[in-house]
Design a protein around this nucleic acid. Structure first.
Lengths: 117, 117
DNA sequence: ACCTATTTGTCCGTATGTATG
DNA sequence: CCATACATACGGACAAATAGG
């Protein structure tokens, strides 16, 4: 996998790494189900700190592009404009809104059931 | 400002701090335009690392609740009435999307729980 | 069922940069 | 110019989940 980082750029390193992954996704060099290299490996290759790569990965996770799990790594999950992707966005939007409002999960589920009827 | 942290909780400290702010927002103890105490100050009071507080503040920023600027601090920009309005919309959008995808309610709730973790 | 290695998650500490006032 | 306060990055430590032997 290719990660090109410009140390002189004013753009943060973690942003550059995330952008690198996004670009490969949009160009089809990365597909759903593909696994990103372990953060430690990327950090070594780019000679940057492990945390910086993990931060990039976590950013991609927040964007819904990858699934991040301990012991398993980072797996591409997004990038397909399907009905399910829209649904995933809807879930994310709802959970974020609930968090912003300080609403507990149980109440969110109650609202879902109420709305479904 | 009150920040209560439970060191024994399995919930991360930065999440507890963010939740603390969200709660004060939803209860009107914090209003738009109010400024959160400097991260350094909170860190000192709670005896946790500065970064942990900054991470909580950045999470709140990502949720659209506060505006974060260097030298200026963290200022509340969002509040619960708007958040609650957005939440109603989010619930409606999700239920509609689930219906369109033919997804059963139980599965939607499972997704909510998964996303909430 | 057990153990080990892998990999992300969180937190701490420190240093330096940069925008604001 | 100077103090304040967030932003990024580095490094280290330990925890927790996963996978494989």
């Amino acid at each position: 996998m290719l990660f090109r980082i410009d140390a002189l750029s004013r753009q943060p390193i973690f942003e550059q790494v995330a952008a690198s992954v996004r670009r490969q996704l949009s160009e089809g060099e990365l597909a759903v189900g593909d696994r990103l290299p372990p953060a430690k490996e990327v950090a070594g290759a780019l000679q940057v700190n492990l945390h910086t790569i993990l931060r990039a990965y976590q950013l991609l996770r927040d964007e819904g592009l990858v699934d991040l799990r301990r012991g398993r790594g980072a797996v591409v999950v997004g990038t397909n404009p399907t009905a399910l992707a829209g649904l995933r966005d809807a879930v994310h939007a709802l959970v974020s809104a609930a968090a912003a409002a300080g609403m507990p999960q149980a109440e969110v589920i109650r609202l879902i059931k109420e709305e479904s009827t």
